[in-house]
Design a binder for these strands. Structure first.
Lengths: 222, 222
DNA sequence: TTTGTACCATGAGAATTTTAATTGTAGAAG
DNA sequence: CTTCTACAATTAAAATTCTCATGGTACAAA
C-alpha cells in the first residue's frame, strides 16, 4: 500500500515516514503543495495524508482537485485547528477523515487502516442534495452548516442515504437500524424521521426524505 | 429439514403440516405425548414443535427428556398460556423459543428459520450458575425468577456469558456491545456491570461477574 | 363532492442510556 | 503497617431513545 504525505515540517513527516514504513507501507513525501498535487494525480497512491497548511497550495485545494479525478481514494487531513469552520471545508472538499495535531501515532494508524480496509465498494461519504454525511467522522453537513445528530438519528440517515433513490420499507429499516427482527409494530421510525426533517430543516422545497405511504421512506434529490 | 409436531388438535396440526410442507419441510405428527417423545428420540428431526398440553405427557416433560440426549436440536413451544409462571419452566426445560396461540403462520415460520439458520455452533441458550439467558426470546432467569433487563443490560450480560471464563477487556466489550471503535475512555461499562449485579442480586457468595482490576470483567461460576 | 378509514406527523412524557462527579478500595511504595 | 494512588463502585443528573396519545391528511368508496 502506497501513501503520499503532503507536509512541510520535517519533524512531522520523518516521524510519520518511519512509523508507516515499519508498518510496511510505501511512503512518499511532498513538502510543497503543487508538487503534492502533481504526485497525487499520478494515481500511484492508495491514500493521501494532507497537512492543512502547506506552502504553495492549501491541503483543501489539493483535496478538491484530487477528488475530481479520484473518487474512491481516501484522504485524511492532519490539522492543528479543530474549529468547526475549518474542518467543514475539509469534509466538503471530500476528505474521508481528519486527525488533530498533536496526535498519537497509534490513532493515526488505526484511522489509516479503517480507510484502507474496505477498499472495494464501501464508501465513507454520502451526498444527498446539499447534505453530506461522513461515516468515519460521524459528521453531517447541510451546505456549510454542521448538523448535530444523535447516534440513532445518524444511523437512520446513513441507512436512507446508502439506499438513495430506493424506497426503504419500515421492516427493513427496523432490522438494519434498530436490529429488531419480527415485530415491527412500533412507531419509532416515524418519530426519528420527524426529528431528522426538523434538524435538517427540510421544507417543501427540499423534501429530500419523502414518505411512501403504506411502505416507508425514500431519500431522493427531489 | 425434518420437523416433528407434537400436538393433539387436528385443526392446528393439519394447518401447520400443510404450511410447512409448502415451505418444503418434511413434517411428522404425534398426537400423543409418549409417542411424541419416542419419535423425537429417534433423532430423525432437526426441530421440535411442542404443544404445551398433550395427552399422555406434557410438552415440558418431553422437552426435558429430549434435551438429555439432544443438546443442540432446537425446540419451540406452542402455548396458549402466556403467564410468566408457565413459560419459565419451558425455558428451564431447555426450549429455545415459544410462540403464543393464536399466532400468525408467518411469525412461526420466521422463528423456525431463525432456529435452523445457525445450525453449527451458535447456541441460543447460555448458562452461568443458576442464571439462564436465552438470546432468541431475550429472557433471563435466575433460578425460577424472571429478571427483567433492558436492551443494553441484556447485551452486556450476553457478551459476558458467551465468553464465560474468559476475561473480557473493556476495549473489547465497548467494541462488541456498544459498537464504539477507538476511544474507550467512558465509564458506561462500570455503570452497567453495577446494574446487572444489582438486578441479578449477586452477593458475595454468588459473585458470577468478577472484576479483573486494570483489565475488565469475567463471568465465572466461582 | 363528501365521508370514512387507514396511515402518518407531531408533541409530550416515560424509560433507558450516558455522562460526570463523588466515594470507596485494592495493591504498590515507602 | 501506613500512606498513596490508580482504579472501580456508586449515585445523581443530563441526554437520548422510545412509547403513546392526539390530530392531521391522503386515498378510496359512496
Amino acid at each position: 500500500m502506497r501513501i503520499l504525505i503532503v507536509e512541510d515540517e520535517p519533524g512531522i513527516y520523518n516521524f510519520l515516514k518511519q512509523g508507516l514504513e515499519e508498518e510496511s507501507y510505501a511512503v512518499d513525501i511532498a513538502e510543497e503543495g503543487k508538487k503534492g498535487l502533481h504526485l497525487a494525480l499520478s494515481g500511484d497512491y492508495d491514500l493521501l495524508l494532507l497537512d492543512w497548511m502547506v506552502p504553495g497550495m492549501s491541503g483543501i485545494e489539493i483535496c478538491r482537485q484530487f477528488r475530481k479525478e479520484f473518487k474512491d481514494t481516501p484522504v485524511i487531513f492532519l490539522t492543528a485547528k479543530d474549529t468547526v469552520d475549518e474542518t467543514i471545508f475539509g469534509l466538503q472538499a471530500g476528505a474521508n477523515d481528519y486527525i488533530k495535531k498533536p496526535f498519537h501515532f497509534e490513532e493515526l494508524l488505526e484511522r489509516i487502516k479503517v480507510q484502507l480496509r474496505p477498499k472495494s465498494g464501501e464508501h465513507s461519504i454520502f451526498k444527498l442534495g446539499n447534505i453530506t454525511l461522513n461515516t468515519t467522522t460521524h459528521q453531517v453537513l447541510k451546505a456549510e452548516e454542521v448538523i448535530s445528530l444523535t447516534q440513532k438519528e445518524f444511523a437512520l440517515l446513513e441507512y436512507l442515504m446508502r439506499n438513495k433513490g430506493i424506497v426503504c420499507r419500515r421492516s427493513r429499516i427496523i432490522e438494519s437500524v434498530w436490529d429488531i427482527h419480527f415485530e415491527y409494530n412500533t412507531g419509532v421510525i416515524d418519530v426519528y424521521i420527524n426529528a431528522l426533517r426538523k434538524k435538517l430543516k427540510l421544507g417543501e422545497d427540499e423534501n429530500y426524505i419523502q414518505t411512501v405511504r403504506g411502505v416507508g421512506y425514500v431519500a431522493k434529490e427531489i
